[in-house]
Design a binder for these strands. Sequence first.
DNA 1: CTCTAGATCCTCT
DNA 2: GAGGATCTAGAGA
Length: 211
Amino acid sequence: MDGAVLSREFFDGPVEEVAPALLGHVISHRTPEGEVAARLTEVEAYAGPLDPASHAYRGPTPRNEVMFGPPGHVYVYFTYGMHFCMNLVCGPDGTSMAVLLRAGEIIAGEDVARARRPRSTVRDLARGPARLCQALGVAREQNGLDVCAPGGAMTVLRGEPADPALIRNGPRTGVNGAKEIPWRFWIEGDPTVSPYRPHVPRQRRKITTEG
DNA sequence: CTCTAGATCCTCT
DNA sequence: GAGGATCTAGAGA
């Protein structure tokens, strides 16, 4: 990596075009523990108000307000009571499109990432959206960070763009609505792409005590 | 590899 | 109150 940061214009476009274009580029996060960088191998696009699967579908809330701001910022959210996931906001200020970063290959700071995920194999360090956040040390405090500022704590660096012939797309993972929108993009054959798991609503541990 | 289940709390209705 | 853009461990094949 030579430290070239992707421009804000890169993110200021239709999310379904920005998402596959991100494959092969590098997300990097610097903390006091060190810097960790991951080459993106799998992403998902979310289209805002038109997309029932998007957090922005029902309009702005305190949680999703970053999605409605300018492109090139990070939207971090907390889910399942214990995990964080990160998105890169796309499209003009006022729209609410974003790309969920689902998986990557750790290419720098592997020692720091392994310290954060001691039970993980190297392959699994960032193989999944919550794993990626954990490996990079991303949590609530990083919500809203600008990734287009050279020298910033979190940046997206220009890498080797994925070979277009190897880019695949299919249904998004873990979502209930809009399954027909095939906006999960990944690099075919890359071992760090996460396994596809269809969504199954969790059963709440027994509701009725019957009587 | 597959399947099952538990963890755990924030957010919006 | 219900359920979630998930992960891990354990059992079985």
